[in-house]
Nucleic acid binder design. Structure first.
Length: 315
RNA sequence: GCAGGGUUAGUGAAGCGGUCAAACACGUCAGACUGUAAAUCUGAUGGCAUAUGCCUUCGUAGGUUCGAAUCCUACACCCUGCA
């Protein structure tokens, strides 16, 4: 279990559910990787007197800066950023912990009269907050490792023996099976979209976004990505969370001499494309997101957000 | 010029007379997703219908056969050895 989750209360800050209209106003900016979320978030924060909450499973981690396209020191100086660097490189972190921390940040920011703006591409993290996911109990570390040694059919046997209901669960996905055992079959719940929340997404034509991803990777390489990864690899094992991300894991064979630099680069590019595809699939089904096409007209976004902040429903 | 090896779907690569629209890998496309989510998993991938269906493919053109990606002949291109 992560020490983080021990320090934070298991229940939300506000025990009694407030009326939707009492919730602090929240802006959400999402989109696939390299779509320009970070820049837009900073811009909005400046215009609307806000602060940014990063909803990203990679940038929560210390030690990974270049490869995660973490907001720069300048950006962080211009606008306060929350939930960056909150875990050690190899520490545990989950969507449930994120949800708690994000809600704290939202309350904190709005209590100081500022506007919270959640920016990120980790769909599960965002949804956990805005749909108030009721995360099931965490699994025990050791028990999980033991379960992980079983194969899917062994896990299914155990599920049957425990008389757990496996309906609706992807029985070919080991993690889902393990999770089913850990939660003893409890079904998760979700609430309707959080009140006072405005969802905005950035959309870029495929060709263009892929070019941006490649360009961004080349910038990262120039900025010393290889050294950053090597430093981590020297200190930690390859199964350290920090080294499992895109732009990190792909260096393993290279450092062991089995892979050229161009091969490493194209592996990272491919992994990035695959990730973007998963993001697109995730966001596609959320009909509440209002999409802006890039290059975004910041005025247009500010107008849209302002309408919402004035208590009206933007169209 | 002579001798030998090769030419298979987007790529690499199996298949060497019927059970082949053709293994497998990669790539590509689509999807799922509630305490690992930059994770994990699934499906499709010649065309058209999309349930058991039909049509066009295995360098090109002919031939043998009830039947060919698989055998024969010629041609084209590529690689290797001898000239």
């Amino acid at each position: 279990m992560s020490d983080l989750s021990e320090k934070t209360p298991k229940t939300p800050q506000t025990p009694q559910t407030p009326e939707p209209s009492d919730l602090p106003k929240l802006l959400v900016v999402t989109g696939e990787t390299a779509s320009g979320k970070t820049a837009l978030g900073v811009e909005l924060a400046k215009r609307l007197d806000g602060e940014v909450i990063c909803a990203d499973s990679a940038t929560v981690r210390r030690g990974v800066d270049i490869g995660t396209a973490k907001p720069t020191a300048e950006e962080r100086q211009e606008v306060p950023h929350h939930l960056l660097d909150v875990v050690e490189p190899c520490g545990d972190f989950t969507a449930a912990v994120f949800k708690r921390l994000a809600n704290q940040a939202i309350d904190d920011i709005s209590a100081r009269g500022k506007l919270p703006i959640m920016v990120g591409g980790t769909g599960l993290y965002i949804d956990g907050v805005i749909y108030d996911f009721d995360f099931m109990p965490a699994g025990d570390r050791q028990a999980r490792e033991e379960l992980n040694r079983l194969n899917p059919s062994q896990l299914l046997d155990r599920i049957k023996r425990l008389r757990l209901d496996a309906s609706g669960v992807d029985v070919r996905n080991k993690r889902r099976l393990i999770r089913l055992i850990e939660t003893k079959g409890q079904k998760p719940t979700r609430q309707p979209l959080r009140g006072n929340t405005l969802l905005m997404g950035l959309k870029t034509p495929r060709e263009e976004i892929e070019q941006r991803m490649i360009k961004r990777l080349d910038d990262m390489l120039e900025a010393g990505l290889e050294d950053e990864v090597r430093a981590l690899a020297d200190r930690y094992d390859w199964d350290c969370e920090a080294l499992k991300g895109i732009g990190y894991a792909q260096w393993k064979d290279y450092f062991q001499g089995d892979q050229s630099l161009p091969e490493t680069r194209s592996k990272i590019i491919r992994a990035t494309f695959e990730y973007a595809k998963r993001q697109r699939t995730w966001f596609k089904r959320n009909k509440s997101i209002h999409w802006f096409h890039t290059p975004v007209n910041v005025e247009e976004v500010v107008d849209y957000a302002t309408t919402f902040l004035n208590g009206q429903v933007p169209s």
